[in-house]
């Protein structure tokens, strides 16, 4: 176990260094500079700007400084916002995390329940309805779900009743958090419910379920105690990627509901050649993704003792 963890940590460090290096050279290969906007900048001013951000030095020297700063945990200052990257990330990721965790919890709970319902009531209207939700969830992107919810439940419902059930924008009161969390969770909810249904059907056909039934156990006990526990394994497996997707892919939902999360900084920094911000957010998300998968791998071993965490190849 310890050997496995150490090995994984080693791989993580190598991966992160590769990411750090690639990010540096790719971002410096982007067309244009970090400063020019709609208005041209006189050469004297441009020289001052490049000196201020160390961009006047040879690229090799810049790279050494860049790696050195990262090793010291210094992400630098955003060229656009003039604020430390670490401050920007810690301030805005709080919102993304809050949104993501809510969405994830909802997706897992609702998705698992929906999957169980569909498998137990297989072939009935319940099954069809549950799978219809799953098809829509998988095929309709979150920005449409978000816009539709915002328009009908945020605006139309308010206009029809005069009561503010859901806020249209922002992230403060509880009524502002429901729609974005739902919009963000919908796709994952659908994936989870389909996975859960398939896995449940598989488990329900197993011999030990028949044995349990033959023993005279109640249907409820068979499903909850024997079937679900085994059927949930595949869901746990995809939880890593889903958690990462939900926590890092909220850009569109954050934009629609005007939530000050981190997604925007990540996307915009690339468009604006804000080098320090590109590097900072990429490394942050990269580390986050690697850690999320790592944690899921560990959790897997705890849930299913048959899985041996050895080698890690």
């Amino acid at each position: 176990m310890l050997k496995y963890i150490l090995k994984r940590v080693g791989y993580t460090v190598v991966t992160l260094f590769a990411l750090l290096t690639l990010t540096f050279f790719i971002m410096h290969a982007l067309p244009g500079d970090a400063f020019t906007g709609q208005k041209a900048i006189p050469p004297e001013v441009m020289a001052n700007l490049e000196a201020k951000y160390g961009l006047d030095k040879p690229i090799g020297e810049q790279f050494v400084m860049y790696v050195g700063n990262f090793l010291r945990g210094d992400f630098g200052v955003s060229i656009k916002y003039n604020r430390p990257i670490s401050t920007i990330i810690s301030e805005s990721f709080v919102y993304s995390l809050d949104l993501g965790v809510r969405a994830l919890l909802f997706a897992v709970i609702a998705g698992v329940l929906l999957g169980i319902l569909a498998s137990v009531k297989r072939g009935t209207g319940w099954d069809t309805a549950a799978m219809l939700i799953a098809i829509i969830g998988v095929s309709v992107p979150s920005f449409i779900v978000g816009s539709v919810l915002q328009y009908f439940l945020g605006l139309q419902l308010f206009q029809a009743t005069g009561i503010k059930f859901f806020a249209v924008t922002g992230w403060d009161a509880f009524n502002s958090k429901i729609l974005p969390a739902f919009a963000l969770s919908f796709g994952s909810l659908a994936t989870i419910s389909r996975l859960m249904r398939t896995s449940m059907l598989d488990v329900l056909g197993q011999d030990y379920i028949k044995t349990a039934k033959a023993k005279g156990l109640s249907n409820r006990k068979v499903i909850w105690k024997h079937a679900v526990r085994n059927a949930i394994m595949p869901v746990v497996t995809v939880l890593g990627p889903i958690a990462a997707a939900v926590l890092t892919g909220a850009f569109v939902v954050e934009r629609i509901f005007s939530i000050p999360g981190l997604g925007k900084f990540f996307v915009q920094s690339v468009r604006e050649n804000d080098y320090t911000m590109i590097a900072g957010t990429t490394m942050f998300y990269g580390t986050f993704l690697i850690l999320a998968n790592f944690v899921v791998d560990l959790a897997y071993g705890f849930i299913d003792p048959r899985v041996k965490l050895e080698g890690g190849k």
């Binding site: 915002q150 328009y151 945020g154 206009q159 249209v168 924008t169 922002g170 629609i256 005007s258």
Partner: peptide, 18 residues
């Protein structure tokens, strides 16, 4: 001053009295 980027969201927020 709020910072709503999306034009549809801004109109919805206006109409909803936000």
């Amino acid at each position: 001053g709020v910072m709503i980027v999306d034009s549809n969201a801004a109109l919805n927020a206006f109409k909803a009295g936000e």
